[in-house]
Design a protein around this nucleic acid. Structure first.
Length: 341
DNA sequence: GTTCCACAGGAAAATATGGAGG
DNA sequence: CCTCCATATTTTCCTGTGGAAC
């Protein structure tokens, strides 16, 4: 029943990108100078999750590599490589220039020097989730090297700009900016339909089911494809002829639970803090810490709890109201599968 | 207004953790 | 097993902010 499972996997780059012609062309035009061997500007791609930022960036660079012989593409996820050192190391590693770098004793500046001396083909560096970098100066490092074209991917441009210093802000403001919006339900349907045709046998899933997935995903393509993948996998394992509505419902729940669990897993065991906020409704920091201290063996200090809270805010698990003494934390209302009907 | 104080979050020092090499 | 080193986490110390009580 599943013809080609790759098509539904995360990170799959399709042959054709649906409904993103303008954005694809925009990004292509930024990289266009490379086809003549000239340096390209830095591009910034922003938009909410699941809008295809990573997808079109990879798509455009792959197409560029088909056109131009001498060009390399490097993809770095800054979420996983969130220090300046790691990011630079990752790039050098992909270039194959890390042979004699030992983490001891190699100063950061030498990594930049090493990149500068790199005289291979022109290289497009995709910095994904660049707003997760703890030290965004790595953008500056790369920005000054003409042999590297940079694509910065971030959720919100303001958050990106607020964290980099002045000189970089002014440079980034003048660079090309591709903004992505959430998909409409019909667009999402088209994407799902295309993937389903590729990956699944005919009649495994009905049109109206695809519509319902699109609806439940609320404009997030990654979520939508995840639901389809989970549903297809489950139907396959259980030897169903086709995807039933029950399976679909389960899959939608599974994916949401997975996403939340994934966020929770990346926190320390002291995530009890999250439970406290969930159980006691909107609540201020003092009360959180007080309750937390009572429930845990070796409590952390208030300052550390503040760090946890702000981390959970980043992960979209909590939201905060108020900026000073009036601040209260609450759990984020999870967009349920039944938001729209 | 003014004062007070809980709060946010940066910087740096202190401490825990992990992993390579003996 | 232990030691050493780098890295990761936590604590300490701190400044600036703005709501609340006066």
């Amino acid at each position: 029943m599943i013809r080609d499972a790759r098509v539904l996997r995360a990170g799959f780059v399709p042959q054709e990108v649906e409904h993103r012609d303008a954005e694809v062309n925009h990004l292509s035009s930024v990289l266009d100078p490379i086809t003549n061997g000239e340096p390209a500007d830095t591009a910034i791609v922003t938009g909410p999750s699941g809008t295809g930022k990573t997808c079109i960036s990879k798509f455009v660079t792959e197409r560029l590599r088909e056109e131009v012989l001498d060009v390399e593409a490097i993809y770095v996820n800054c979420w996983r490589n969130y220090t300046r050192f790691r990011t630079l190391y990752q790039i050098l590693d992909d270039l194959g220039a890390t042979i004699d770098i030992h983490r001891q004793s190699t100063p950061h500046d030498e990594l930049v020097d090493r990149l500068q001396q790199h005289d291979g083909p022109r290289t497009v560096v995709i910095l994904d989730e660049v707003d997760q970098l703890e030290d965004p100066s790595v953008i500056y490092d790369l920005h000054s090297l003409p042999q590297f074209a940079i694509i910065c991917i971030a959720n919100k441009e303001e958050e990106l700009f607020s964290r980099v210093d002045e000189r970089l802000v002014s440079r980034l403001r003048s660079s090309e900016h591709v903004r992505m919006n959430k998909y409409h339900d019909e667009q999402l349907y088209d994407i799902l339909d295309a993937r389903a045709k590729w990956c699944l046998d005919e009649d495994v899933i009905a049109d109206d089911q695809l519509y319902r997935i699109a609806d439940a995903a609320a404009g997030d393509a990654r979520l939508a494809i995840g639901i389809l993948r989970t549903a297809a996998g489950k139907a396959d394992r259980e030897n169903h002829e086709r995807i039933t509505d029950d399976i679909l419902l389960d899959a939608a729940e599974d994916i949401r639970a997975q996403i939340k669990q994934k966020s929770l897993d990346s926190l320390t065991p002291h995530q009890r803090v999250y439970d406290i906020v969930r159980e006691h409704g909107p609540v201020g920091p003092s009360e959180i810490h007080q309750r937390y201290t009572e429930e845990v063996d070796d409590p952390r200090t208030k300052r550390t709890i503040r760090t946890y809270l702000s981390k959970m805010r980043q992960y979209n698990l909590l939201e905060a109201e108020g900026t000073s003494r009036d601040r209260e934390y609450a759990t984020v209302e999870s967009r349920s599968a039944a938001t729209t009907t």
